[in-house]
Amino acid sequence: MTSSSAPSRKALSKIATNRLQKELVEWQMNPPTGFKHKVTDNLQRWVIEVIGAPGTLYANDTYQLQVDFPEHYPMESPQVIFLHPAPLHPHIYSNGHICLDILYDSWSPAMTVSSICISILSMLSSSTEKQRPPDNDRYVKNCKNGRSPKETRWWFHDDKV
């Protein structure tokens, strides 16, 4: 699943295009709270603004998510990263990679950009400390050359956040 699904520049399949157009229309009619899709003409890469939820450590902070869709979306998960500067969070690396299982092994084609966004916001909201993951430096060093987080061997050992 992973090695073949690096953010290659392969064009979206027809199925992927149809599905994304549908998602875009639905997003425009009913965007998830706290998110703004930055309008471009690129269906294959969405840039989404995230506003930290009120009452959380990230209240009023603004971040940007970049979502790249593979040829066979939604069978394959999109690549989702935070653009610089990524929020300080125990599951978010300074290079923007996010340790969140639904983005990798637990992806399901019934998930949408909108549901991903909600999961990410909920992950932010439940954090109790603004901190990098303990292995941040090691991980980021190993990710040189713009490696996709989808090639990472993730271990989802923390159930709390």
Binding site: T2, S3, D105, S106, E151, R153, W154, W155, F156
Partner: peptide, 25 residues
């Protein structure tokens, strides 16, 4: 798709896939 992935996984025995046995698979 699911089964094509499975086949690919079991055929390649690729290290990058073995992790899935422990979490989601």
């Amino acid at each position: 798709w699911l089964h094509a992935q499975k086949d690919a996984d079991s055929e390649s025995g690729d290290a990058s896939h073995t992790r899935r046995g422990s979490t989601a698979e």
